[in-house]
Amino acid sequence: MPPHKLKVAIIGPGNIGTDLMIKVMRNSQHLEMGAMVGVDPKSDGLARAERLGIATTAEGIEGLLRLDVFEDIDIVFDATSASAHKHHNALLQAHGVQVIDLTPAAIGPYVIPAINLEAENASNMNMVTCGGQATIPMVAAVSRVAKVHYAEIVASISSKSAGPGTRANIDEFTETTKAAIEKLGGAERGKAIIVLNPAEPPLIMRDSVFVLSELADQALVEASIEKMVAAVKAYVPGYRLKQRVQFDVIAPEHPLNVPRLGPRHGLKTSVYLEVEGAAHYLPSYAGNLDIMTSAALACGDMMAQRRIASGIARGLKETT
């Protein structure tokens, strides 16, 4: 029997939404584009979608509901803002549509494919943030070897790769990423920082991860991190360690003071990453786009498989 593909819509034709559209068309195993949704008739993303023969609307979520193709849409990716997502999700859930949230709204469970994609099956799946997708797998890798007291991540991205949606969600970025560091990374306490780097020429996405855990075998920690890097790289080819993992032993007599936890000693693990984008929409320096949309695509393909297998797909279509 020919493989099945389900139609998807993307709300938000900005940098992330446009890059995701191209990935769906080029790389998806179980998805095909059904509609691109925005609010600005002059949007470049809407114009690109229209040129590619995809149904478009500049009337937002209400416009999507009025499109003829909507009855065949099974999955909607929301790449707008945390504030708008609550409204979008309520309308889509009423129609039995699977929602994949690329905003920091965090209505559904946090999902990072390398950590917990197969374990989650909710009608709304939250993709955390670009910085979270890049760094939390490293925290989880340490957590699999030793109890993590504290984890701090710093995500540095090119200012040119940060669109209006990213800029409008900075506060939500830090709060959502922090919460996911604790929920998915296994840290007692987490902290997230994002840096928009205005350098010219634009710099590739760089991420620093600092983890304070109980003492553990450094070789085991390093092996766990390398295994996790390979898992992320399977769906984000440009993901890599910038240099070898670094360790420092924090002695009991010279502990670090962790806010709200107090003095802690053990093993400090420092991980330095870079993420090179696939250059589907923006140049390769925009690794923050690439890791977010690649993770969302992996999630969408998995959810499509589940909807097909369960027989609940709204617009099941055979393709060759």
Rank of each mutant, 00 (worst) to 15 (best):
L67P: 05
K242A: 13
P198A: 02
G238T: 12
A146W: 13
S81H: 08
A230G: 03
S213D: 04
T293Y: 00
V148R: 05
M36N: 04
A231D: 10
K191E: 14
D217S: 11
I10N: 07
F247K: 04
G277N: 08
S156F: 05
A216D: 09
T129I: 02
Y285L: 03
F173N: 02
C299H: 12
P164F: 13
R306F: 04
I16P: 00
S208G: 10
N15S: 12
P41A: 12
A251W: 14
S158A: 15
I181Y: 00
A313L: 10
Y110S: 09
I153E: 04
S123Y: 08
A309G: 12
N257D: 14
P263H: 08
G277R: 02
I312D: 15
S43M: 09
E182C: 15
A90W: 07
R66W: 02
K160Y: 04
T177W: 03
V275Q: 04
D40V: 09
S158K: 07
E62N: 14
E226G: 06
M228L: 07
S294C: 11
A94T: 09
V209A: 11
A251K: 15
G277H: 01
V76T: 07
G60W: 01
L196F: 08
V8A: 09
L92A: 03
V128M: 08
N116Q: 06
V8D: 11
D44V: 13
L256W: 14
L196Y: 10
E172W: 06
R244Y: 09
R144V: 04
K23V: 00
V236C: 15
L64W: 03
D248C: 13
P259G: 13
A140D: 05
Q98V: 01
Y272P: 00
R66Y: 05
Y239C: 04
Q29K: 13
A146M: 06
G186I: 11
S28V: 02
A119L: 08
H265I: 05
A234F: 06
N288K: 07
A79C: 15
A231K: 12
G311H: 10
S270G: 02
A106P: 00
A114N: 10
D248S: 13
D40S: 11
I181A: 02
